[in-house]
Amino acid sequence: MKHKLMLGRYIEGQSLLHRLDPRSKLAGMLCFIAAVFLINSYVTLFIGLVFTLIIIVLTKIPLSYYIRAIKPLIFLIAFITLFHIFFHTEGARMLKVGVFSIYSGGLEKGLVAAGRMTLFIAFASVLSFTTQPDRIANALGSFLRPLKRLGVPVERLTLMLSLSLRFIPTIFEEAERIWKAQVSRGFSLADQPLKEKAKRTIALLVPVTSSAFRRAESLADAMEARSYRLGASRSQYRQMLWKRSDTLFVLSFTLPICLITLFN
């Protein structure tokens, strides 16, 4: 049986981070984003980096996995860095490259921006490596629950999220098969202007979409046949237990936030 790429790239383990309630990890993520936003200098970046490395060590997952997660986005990071470097003119002029000049202020801004992006990706990886996708979905669902009072269809959204997680690999496989079938019939996007390419993609979009609709209908029948009713109360098999370690984890974010604010 082929082992397909799993969504979320969950990596099995028993570390402290693995055993935390997904809600605390999600809450931690929000705190972390706040902290990262406040980073604006080499010093504050260093604080953020240390904190992130501590968390990475706690996941007991080798650093190479995180580097592999960052690699695909290296061009984006480089672009942002260069953008800042060339378009900020504060500080002392350090280098002259033809028409462009690099200033120390720009360099700092560029490196800090790159650092922030990297930290962000690293933490997102911590979340996805240590938490199974459906648990993230459960956590999101529980966070959104108070919004029910405002008329937000929380149950529907949570259902959509978990069904997406269930079906994305399956639909991806089907899309691949349809692509292969069309290629076998002479489908090709090579050497075509963009407009023509877009037009030709209908050969992929129509089958995949109509199949998705068909699936949705069958799925609705299957769910109803198993006594599912939208809005009816149901029990919950998967439990999320908030322990003391979870509270401590979320509270621990106050340290970097305070430090970063101090050194801001």
Binding site: A181, Q182, S184, G186, A203, V206
Partner: peptide, 17 residues
């Protein structure tokens, strides 16, 4: 090659669009 070897996948009706 593509034209001279015709490949029909499982559930080929899925490719009709």
């Amino acid at each position: 090659l593509n034209q001279r070897i015709g490949l029909v996948f499982q559930y080929p009706e899925q490719q009709l669009f």
